[in-house]
Design a binder for these strands. Structure first.
Lengths: 219, 219
DNA sequence: CAATAATGTAATCGACGCTTACATTCACGT
DNA sequence: ACGTGAATGTAAGCGTCGATTACATTATTG
C-alpha cells in the first residue's frame, strides 16, 4: 500500500500538480526557494530543510540533488551571479560607448545599485565563506571578465590622456575597493552611523564615485 | 554526595586549579574562548557549546552569563572593539602631529593593517549581522569618535588649503568605503582573483591609500 | 515487459541553541 | 561562627539543523 495514496482525480481533469511522488523539477525549485530564503533573512538563513519544506518534499530529498548545504549555496550563488551579470551587461549597453571614463563610472554605479538592491545575493557571490568560488567556473569567468573590463576602461582613458599620472593596477583595485566598500557599508548597516539616510544613499553613491573619478583625471 | 568528588589534594600543595564546582571567572574565559574560536574559523564557528567545552564547563553554564549566543557575540565584539581602538590610538600617537593629511593616511593604514591581521574580529565588529551594534554603548562611541576623527583631519587639511575643492562629507565617506572595501576584499578572498599576492597586500594597501589621497589634494 | 537507474521517503545520528529543575558554593547579616 | 539566600554550576531534555542509511516508488530503456 503506497504511503502517499494518490488522490483520485475526477475523471477528465488534466491534473493540476497533485503531489506526485516524483517532484519533477526539484532541483530548480530548491534553488529558487533558497534564493528566496536568502533574500528574506540573509545567507545564513538558508537551510536545506526549509528549502525542502517550501518545495513540499522530505528533508532528505534535496540531498539527491545537492551533496551538502554548501553545494546548494553554490547553485544559489551561480544563479545570483547570472542575474548580476545580466544587470551589469544591460547597464553597460546603455552607457555612452565612446567615453571610457563615463563607462567606468556607469559600471561602478550599476554595480552599486545591484548590490544595494539585492544585498543577500550580493553577499553570497562576494564572500568566500558562503560558497566555494573556485569551484564555479562560471562565477570565476564572470569575475575575471568584470575585472578585465575595469582594466580596459581605465587603460583606454589613460591612452586618451584623460588621467593624471598614476599606476593603472592600483587605480583598478582602488576603484573596486571603493564600490565594494560602499556596498558593504550599506549592507552591513554602517550608513546610519555616518549620517546618511536611506533616501540619500544612491545620491551619495554617485557623489562618492564622482569624487573618486575626479581624483583620477588630469587636473 | 557530591557528583563531582573533589580530588584529594596532596597535603601542602597550594592548589593548581583542580576543577572546582564554581569556575570563578567563567564569563571572561568564555569570551576569550569565543575570541579564539572566531580567530580560528570565523565568526560563524563561534558556538556556545564549544566555548563551554573549552572552559571545561557544562553546555548550560554559559547561559548564566550570556542570555543567548548573540549576547556572547556582543561581548566578543566589545572586546574586539577595545583591541581595535587601542591599536588605532597607538598608531595615531606615532603619527606626525602637524600634517592632517599624513595623519589621515596613517589612520587609514592602521585601520587596514588591524583589519587584515585580525579578520574575524574585524568582521564581527563591522557586520551588523553578527551582533547588535546599537546595543553596545562603547562600540557606538568608539565608532563615532573614529568617524569624527576622519572628519576633523580632512577639515583641517581643507582649512590649510591642502585639498582641491570637494565636499568633505563625501570625501570622508569615500575614504571609509575605500579602506573598508579593501579590508573586506582581503578577508573575503578577492585578491587572488585580482592578481595581488599575499606578500604584496600591505604594499598595495599603501599604494591604494596614496592614490586616493593624491586625488584629494590640490594639483 | 522486465531490469535498472533516478528520485523520492522514513528513520536515525550528532551538534547546536535554549529551557527547566536541581545541586553546590559563596557571601553576608546576625 | 553560622545559616540562609543569591550566585553559579550540572543534568536532562526540547526542537532545529545537516547528513547518512535503508527502503519505496517512478521513469527509462533494451
Amino acid at each position: 500500500m503506497p504511503r502517499f495514496p494518490r488522490p483520485k482525480r475526477s475523471a477528465g481533469r488534466p491534473s493540476p500538480p497533485p503531489r506526485r511522488y516524483h517532484h519533477g523539477d526539484l532541483k530548480r525549485v530548491l534553488v529558487d526557494a533558497a534564493l528566496e530564503l536568502a533574500a528574506e533573512g540573509g545567507p545564513e538563513q538558508v537551510s536545506v530543510r526549509e528549502a525542502a519544506r517550501r518545495a513540499g518534499v522530505s528533508p532528505a530529498a534535496p540531498f539527491r540533488h545537492f551533496a551538502s548545504r554548501e553545494a546548494l549555496m553554490s547553485a544559489v550563488a551561480e544563479e545570483a551571479q547570472r542575474r548580476f551579470r545580466t544587470e551589469i551587461a544591460r547597464a553597460m549597453a546603455d552607457a555612452l560607448a565612446d567615453d571610457p571614463l563615463a563607462r567606468f563610472r556607469q559600471l561602478g554605479l550599476a554595480y552599486l545599485r545591484w548590490a544595494m538592491r539585492n544585498p543577500a545575493h550580493f553577499t553570497i557571490i562576494s564572500t568566500r565563506a558562503h560558497f566555494d568560488h573556485d569551484g564555479s567556473a562560471s562565477v570565476s569567468r564572470d569575475n575575471a571578465e568584470l575585472i578585465a573590463l575595469t582594466g580596459d576602461l581605465l587603460a583606454e582613458a589613460a591612452a586618451r590622456g584623460q588621467l593624471r599620472p598614476l599606476d593603472l593596477a592600483t587605480a583598478r583595485i582602488a576603484g573596486r575597493a571603493l564600490v565594494y566598500g560602499f556596498a558593504r557599508m550599506h549592507i552591513d548597516g554602517h550608513f546610519p552611523r555616518w549620517g546618511v539616510a536611506e533616501a540619500e544613499i544612491e545620491r551619495t553613491a554617485e557623489a562618492v564615485l564622482d569624487l573618486f573619478v575626479g581624483g583620477l583625471i588630469r587636473a
